[in-house]
Design a protein around this nucleic acid. Structure first.
Lengths: 335, 335
DNA sequence: CTGAAAGCGCTTACAG
DNA sequence: CTGAAAGCGCTTACAG
């Protein structure tokens, strides 16, 4: 059926091992032989069988991408992580096995134990992530996007949410705001162990306390019409608040229409700052000053580190936990 | 390193072939032998090596998912297709190789010729899709989401965009509207050969002509601030139009805030109908009566048909082109 | 500079 | 009901 290395060898009048070495460049080949092999390869349209190569080399050149989609989650932001992971992997010669199974522990076990992948990237890592035990048992290395409670022996990449919160509070404080509402991710994110929720909130509250400013924390919602209702309820309850910090994708996406409907304009009536990826902001036409959440950089770093572990486990050094430094993009939504 | 079938055979005191048959159930095994094998498997934690099995059976149990991300595209809707494809594949025992390469012809060639996949699902198929020639040459079957010019020999799944347009025009016509603006996907979608653009628009125009109503076609934009500007320009240019048909994700997502900013309320000042997936509408809090674009049903159907072709090529019958019948969800945005 | 052969971990006719 | 052996398509010591 498909063209094999044996077909190429026959056409070029050499042995299969010579073809293999020509392919890998692991030993020198005479110019003439090389030319005949190259011709045979192109004329036959030969492409190495991935499974056979994997079996012989114990390398699949595939990276597993483990995602966790929750029914109650705001999906649009997910792709921002998947795409850079996939693109970076390909640049480094790897394909992506996308694993979206609900039972992600079993899924992780399955793809690692069956030898389908050379390594895995875990997205949406939570505080006590049940996948980590499986990952530690696996023969392949893994890289995490999201900070778990225990990071020993794992390469971890995440935004510095604490610092992000402090930056935003400082930004507002410097502009004279003394009463601020902070909208966190939905309660179920906290319950699930999404540490970014409290890392951001606690840092914001702590900073506020230090400055002696009033800060009102709320959980956001993830679906309409609850989102709109909850925003209105917060604003009604805190009429004297002059600024809003939104750490919640679904809420920030809905905010423009809710505020316009209320007749509230930004920044004249209310200052707003947030945290989201620029592409996300573009998709939702968001005009807010915000910390860049950097899914692109996180995804790319995770893959690069993972590939380093795969290809040169000895040189890759000890496990790293790397926090992306937050950067504010000022879009003029504060005064 | 990893546990192999040989380890299991040794532990159970049988041959590897017996273990293999116990695994596949392709021949009867004595109860006692079966028990010893099962015990060995669980105690050793054996999971079949996927590459070795693939080499022996010529079946990888992996489906390639070929996507095309364009820099000028509105990304949030993409995941709505990816997820159902992935979930359905897994239900049927397949994993997903996610291929996001820009050069998707080369990518398709690579994953099929290397035998990495048993079949492929092509997303975002355009009118003269360059991937189709490669697909027809491939040893593996493929299923398309999106209607190309030539469908011979291919399984194709798409929404019936013509009927969708007619449904929406009828809906407005029945409510007395006689001058309507229709917003198509951006010009670059047409140029790229996104047939859904003109299939919808042409059907809408034809229907309008038949009813003798005025219809003004426009291309939408895909990014801010052009989106907002273009909507305002259309409404300024057609002050007497009473309804808007929006066949454009980026435009419909931005519409609520643009209309509110203009002081236009729906449906009192302007009736609006559109076409989008319900999850998309939920994410963007869209309140419009719309045809459901059914990414879920399309993705699931494509995978099911593909798996049928993979597992029983003889029983699967001739190639099919299947159009999902459009259904309107009335959200009260017309009068 | 090149080839014959073993081996990667499975499956499956062939034999009994 | 079970086993020994060939073969899937590669890679890589081993030999020359």
């Amino acid at each position: 059926m498909a063209v094999t290395i044996t077909d190429v060898a026959r056409a070029a009048g050499v042995s299969t091992s010579t073809v293999s070495y020509a392919l890998s460049g692991k030993r020198s080949i005479s110019p003439d032989t090389r030319r005949r092999i190259d011709e045979a390869i192109t004329s036959l349209g030969f492409i190495v069988n991935a499974g056979a190569r994997a079996l012989a080399t114990s390398q699949t050149m595939v990276i597993g991408l483990l995602t966790q989609f929750h029914a109650d989650e705001f999906a649009p932001a997910m792709l921002e992580y998947i795409l850079p992971v996939s693109d970076t992997a390909r640049e480094l010669g790897y394909d992506i096995l996308l694993v979206t199974e609900l039972d992600s522990v079993a899924a992780l076990r399955r793809v690692t134990s069956s030898g389908m992948v050379d390594g895995v990237v875990l997205l949406d890592v939570v505080h006590e992530d049940p996948r980590l035990a499986t990952l530690r048992d696996a023969a392949q290395p893994g890289a995490l996007v999201g900070l778990p409670k225990h990071t020993e022996g794992l390469d971890v990449f995440d935004l510095d949410f604490g610092e992000s919160a402090r930056l935003l509070v400082d930004h507002l404080y410097a502009r004279g705001h003394r009463e601020i509402i902070v909208v966190s991710p939905p309660l179920h994110v906290f319950e699930r162990g999404g540490a970014y929720g409290w890392r951001f909130r606690d840092a914001a509250l702590e900073r506020a306390a230090r400055y002696g400013l009033q800060m009102h924390p709320y959980y956001g919602e993830s679906r309409q019409p609850e989102i709109g209702r909850s925003i209105n309820a917060m604003l009604d309850a805190r009429p004297t608040a002059t600024a809003l910090i939104v750490h919640n994708d679904a809420t920030i996406a809905a905010l423009p229409s809710v505020l316009t409907a209320r007749g509230v304009s930004t920044p004249d009536d209310l200052s707003v700052v947030s945290l989201y990826a620029k592409d996300f902001g573009r998709a939702f036409s968001l005009p807010y000053t915000a910390v860049e959440s950097s899914p692109d950089e996180l995804g790319r770093s995770a893959v690069r580190q993972l590939v380093r572990r795969i290809t040169s486990p000895d040189l890759a050094g000890p496990a790293v936990t790397r926090f992306v430094a937050p950067e504010i993009t000022d879009r003029g939504s504060t005064r």
